[in-house]
Amino acid sequence: MRLEPRAATSLGVNLAWGAAAIAATLVFTSLLVLIAGASPFTVFYLVARGAAGSQFALLETLTRATPLIFTGLAVAVAFRARLWNIGAEAQLYIGAVMTVVLGTGAIQMPSAGLIPLIMMAAMLAGALLLLGPAVLKTRLGVDEVVTTLLLNFIIILFVSMLLEGPLKDPTGMGWPQSKRVIAEAQLPRLIKGKRLHYGFVLALVSAGIVWVIIKKTVLGYEMRAVGHNAEAARFAGIPVNMVLVKTALISGGLAALAGFSEVAGLKGNLTLDLSPGYGYTGIVVAMLAMLNPLGVVVAAIFVAGIFVGADAMSRSANVPSYIAQVMVATALLTMVTAMMLMRYRIRWRR
């Protein structure tokens, strides 16, 4: 078996392989469901119903999708320029830290001023956190995969230290958690009495802005040029290192917004389980979206839906909700394979 590049990609081929990827995902997870002793059809139905079968389910899915949109955008922006930011998790947490530092009473002002201020500070913190790896990469050639990945552990331990020390809530019965943000620092709920908050709107707006940056601006053009062929970009006079640094700032800022939005919109305080790996899942979301910022919204809702749906499903069917992780992982693998097959054709040896 060998791969030959296709002369041109066609919509039909792309759709066919996309459909094949979804089918393969369903078939593979069906097998696991069968092993678990349940009917795949029932399980898939329950997942779909749990993700979008009611207003509650749908709002829950969108709520869960919100941080994934931010981290997905962060990864998509960075990967476009071939800056391998694996550290969205750390940037998310540093954004959350800034939110509780500024939002728990240190500054008193109306929401209209406080929320943008906190947002800016969170983005700045996330941006600066990725600046280090970006400068190490451009100046010394240090692999950013290693530095950003390892920074995740450093930052999470740092947050743990903060929650046991300076940021610890004195009224928290000894739990490692921060004080709650004041009312003026909270993002309002979209629908009264539901969990979905304005962070989701902010995520949609961010996706739109990132789309404009990538498609319409000089910086987006530079980022894509650097990502596709850094040597040619450098030859043409594009300041490759500066572009990578700017990309890092944007990417880090976007990931930090996930932390800001989770704390200010949903949780109200910072705990060590603020993110169940949203930074890493953001990589999955960005890849599923083929690094398209608008696709990130769709992919984030899809992935969130599977997680939310699987939680609901496991309550009624006797299948562990871990099936969601398997489904998402399988979907990623089949989609990445499908994306390659959209560009290459398989030749079987006779």
């Binding site: 894509r224 040597e231 040619a232």
Partner: peptide, 13 residues
Amino acid sequence: HATGMIGDMSVAE
């Protein structure tokens, strides 16, 4: 291919 052009971008780009 390596230096002159960016293969995955358009002619205009």
